[in-house]
Design a protein around this nucleic acid. Structure first.
Lengths: 368, 368
DNA sequence: CTGAAAGCGCTTACAG
DNA sequence: CTGAAAGCGCTTACAG
């Protein structure tokens, strides 16, 4: 256009391709898209078009296509950052989401918020044509706020802490998982079992507390309020509350075992214990929840409850895609009932039988 | 909610807003965007327009806007997954990227590839208007391939392993970092210092090897080829190569200290040593590189070289934004020279003075 | 100061 | 079978 050489090379358009091949832009579109109607393009013409496109490095402009197709081929993921650390839980789920999205030829874009309550409008604001659907990751909001989500965008939630009408939730049997790992600790001879919970009131945190209490009671152990500490699912806070507890209690009173509401908190606890010279698992057994990468990169490796985070992320995409297809017509209908995944206990080096149960064995051998 | 169950709720358009307010779509646009020309909208009209927009839940369609503005307000991040595990290095960098992008009001979309060499075309394919610029994370490709990157999209690389023309690279002084930590080991009395490197040939791996060698030579130690092992930056392979080396060597020949090319490899080495009853740091000192979260969650905590990964991610966004602004006119010019961050040695419990230098001290006291 | 028109790049539906 | 036209939703540039 401009005879003066401009710095920014402009991307080639369909019109450019058509011009180079001596056909109309429309013919180029038909040939490149292999639409039904492209049968009418003669093989030679089509070859010329493909060649021109290749030579010009033609890429269909996604915004233009989206405008007419009303489809961006992109799914959004909304997540809140607590503090400023992206946690590993999120990464595992994102892993599954990206993988599944790629399988459907969809892009994934991540939106981060500070706070579900205040930012729910921003979640809605993002539904402006840039995404075809949205996955809400561990959302916490009121149902009134949830009602403000735009109707024209389909939503799927994962680990939702509140039920929103018409939003399918993907979850795991957290209460069962918590129960099973605490039951295991009891079987191994531990009696004074501490739980470092998530924020009280959140569905996920409460379910884990319920499982913990149930397993204790089944084992004939009366839950000790002094051994139930509330934290917020982060390593930093896990470390903090553990140190505070240790400061307030004499060394002989440390628990036999500690069950943390998630792996991140367990990492913080591990740091706190190490800094006070309390050995894991020699002095206290420790376990987490989630089976994130980090549970395998601690030394000792962390016993935990596995929820198939990656699969759960993938499932969220599957369901979201069904809803998107349904909206765009043609797709089969979808279900509104929550999807519940099983959990399983993963025993690793951080948990050993209560030492008193084997006091004739030298301490060294406990850690192999 | 909707009793009519109108499935296909369509998002409100500017025309809808204009109609509701009794003005043209263009007037609505001017009022809502507060453009210079919007001064001409009377306060009453503007109020009516804002009210109508609010009531209709109007959101400017991003695809339409992008089409005319040639701007998506989205930056892409390209990353290769080795195996199927997203590693912690990536998480830290992504943290910084998302944070900075949010600050500039930009979205971040992550593209994952299997292999830089084969997928470089796919990196280009993604430059189709959906992103305004791209960050390449630790890319490995040939400069010929790099030349195929679309000219119309600005790129910034982080930890690039090959230099591509016109692509600014963000890096850290890895050679210096490796040198400094090995120098420290020498100062502490260690002589037989092993290095478990990254894949030979990769820029980052070579720089660390060079720093290692230089520090040895400065300390009057002739590098021993038997103590230089090549691995691939993963925990799994780090464990494997360490075990192989131990199998091939008699116990008295184990090194005084081991410097791993990254933290992940060091975790694997830690496992390998533990499985053979070799104590860290009692029998051998160990250190990594990167200062990822995992270096703080091992017992003992891992000495390492810190590179400010998060800041580096943020810097990549800063520079990319400059280039994007420059292309869209108006912005200040940008530099093509690489940006080099400082590294620093972080000493932690996994490194102690060479025991022979303090043989009168009981082993227990070494680990506090 | 105002509104009508053109155009971003593409696809779909419709005449010829 | 083919090309010309309309339109997706928005903003910019241009007449009145």
């Amino acid at each position: 256009m401009n005879p003066r050489r401009k710095k920014n090379t402009r991307a080639a358009t369909l019109a450019d391709v058509g011009r180079a091949a001596g056909v109309s832009a429309m013919a180029a579109s038909a040939a490149l898209n292999e639409t039904r109607t492209s049968a009418r393009i003669s093989p030679e013409t089509r070859a010329k078009i493909l060649e021109a496109a290749e030579k010009l490095g033609y890429r269909p402009n996604v915004a233009a296509r989206a405008l007419v197709k009303r489809r961006m081929n992109t799914i959004g993921v909304s997540v809140v950052w607590y503090g400023s650390e992206l946690n590993v839980y999120f990464i595992e789920v994102l892993n599954g989401i990206i993988e599944a999205a790629t399988h459907f030829n969809q892009n994934t874009t991540v939106f981060t918020f500070h706070n579900w309550k205040d930012d729910i409008d921003r979640v809605g604001a993002v539904c402006d044509g840039r995404i075809d659907g949205m996955i809400l990751l561990a959302p916490v909001y009121s149902s009134e706020l949830a009602a403000r989500l735009p109707l024209h965008t389909p939503f799927v939630a994962l680990h939702a802490n509140v039920e929103a009408e018409g939003v399918v939730n993907i979850e795991s049997d957290e209460e069962r998982g918590a129960h099973d790992i605490v039951e295991k600790l009891v079987e191994l001879g531990h009696r004074r079992i501490m739980h470092i919970s998530g924020p009280r009131g959140l569905l996920g945190a409460e379910r884990r507390v319920r499982g913990y209490r149930a397993a204790l009671l089944e084992g004939g152990i009366e839950p000790d309020p002094d051994l139930l500490i509330s934290s917020n699912f982060t390593a930093i806070d896990g470390k903090k509350v553990m140190l505070e507890w240790l400061d307030a209690h004499a060394r002989p009173n440390i628990p036999d075992a500690i069950f943390c509401a998630n792996d991140a908190a367990a990492l913080g606890v591990l740091e706190a214990l190490a800094s006070r010279g309390i050995r894991v698992p020699g002095d206290v057994s420790l376990c987490g929840f989630d089976d994130t990468i980090s549970s395998r990169t601690t030394v000792p490796q962390l016993a935990t409850v596995r929820q198939p985070l990656r699969d759960m992320g993938g499932k969220a995409v599957d369901i979201l895609m069904q809803r998107i297809e349904a909206i765009h017509g043609g797709g089969p209908d979808f279900t509104h009932s929550p999807v519940v995944f099983d959990t399983s206990v993963i025993l690793r080096d951080s948990v050993i039988p209560m030492p008193s149960a084997q006091q004739n064995i030298a301490p060294d051998l406990n850690s192999r």
